[in-house]
Nucleic acid binder design. Structure first.
Length: 278
DNA sequence: CCACGGCCTGATTC
DNA sequence: AGAATCAGGCCGT
């Protein structure tokens, strides 16, 4: 068991169960999930994260990166001068925007299109269970997310067995593009926002919303701003944005309004709206 | 560029 | 009951 001392607030519940990641679960006070291909178990204890993982390795820098622990969110919202956003921040203080693995993140959000969280989780977990590599922490068994090679060996019909519906061919198409060529997305770490957005839009099943999710939740593009149904409601209801504007225009309005940390602010607004404004 | 209809599926609603 | 409705959108026309 290892420990990491926390320098900023961290709230694991809102971070892991706010719809940005789909595979974490909680059992007897411990949270289980994956960082890249490592199965990991952790909890907050005093002012530390206590963790262990399937490889029995020290994993500190990976956890700090994954949970965005060095980023000072207070500063972001303090400098914003936006009452509504500040309320959302205060309500979910300690929520973090994760830095997930781009490959799993891309497939997850392709699957998320016009769906809901339980169904998305089920598909991704089923894919992993059937096609991933088994990992263990003590007696707890997990499975890594399948590689592009594994997924592209399937056909559309067998992918549909994972409740993917019409998204099956998008998952297959994207997997094929990335098979033996994962750099197509990992290289985007080095691209700017506009260029990585353009690159992501070339994958089947990826439109403006999904691409912006992948950019903010895995590729460290904090300017990205996914506009989904909930965020659209935020913009229209709470910021007076014209409902008739296209999604693209709404996104651009928001990025112009919220600035370089639009993506992080978006996640708080999204979660806040979902919790309180059904 | 923008508007519109179709689309898998499982849970919920009436 | 069994049919409508709804849910983190994308794609083709």
């Amino acid at each position: 068991m290892y420990q990491i001392k926390l320098i900023h607030d961290l709230d694991l519940d809102s971070t892991l169960f706010s719809g940005q990641a789909f595979r974490w679960y909680k059992k007897n006070e411990w949270y289980y999930g994956y960082i890249k291909n490592t199965f990991i178990k952790l909890r907050k204890y005093n002012n530390c994260i206590e963790y262990t993982n399937s490889e029995n390795t020290k994993f500190e820098s990976e956890i700090i990166e994954y949970f965005d622990l060095n980023n000072n969110y207070y500063q972001i919202f303090e400098n914003l001068d936006d009452h509504n956003a500040y309320l959302a921040y205060k309500r979910f203080k300690g929520m973090k925007v994760l830095n997930q693995d781009p490959w799993e993140c891309l497939i997850s959000f392709i699957i998320s299109a016009w769906s809901n969280v339980p169904k998305i989780s089920k598909s991704i977990n089923d894919l992993s269970l059937k096609l991933g590599v088994e990992k263990k922490i003590d007696t707890e068994v997990g499975h890594t997310f399948p590689t592009p090679g594994i997924l592209s060996d399937l056909d559309e019909k067998s992918l549909r067995n994972f409740s993917l519906g019409y998204r099956a061919k998008y998952v297959l198409g994207t997997s094929k593009l990335l098979n033996n060529n994962l750099d197509l997305i990992y290289d985007l770490f080095n691209y700017n926002y506009e260029n990585s957005l353009k690159a992501l839009l070339k994958f089947p099943g990826v439109g403006d919303k999904v691409a912006n999710c992948v950019l903010v939740y895995s590729l460290k593009k904090s300017y990205a701003f996914p506009v989904d149904l909930w965020v659209e409601r935020v913009l229209v209801d709470d910021y007076g944005v014209n409902k008739k504007l296209s999604m693209l225009k709404k996104r651009e309005w928001a990025q112009n309004h919220f600035g370089p940390y639009s993506g992080i602010i978006q996640h708080f607004l999204f979660h806040y709206k979902r919790q309180y404004n059904h």
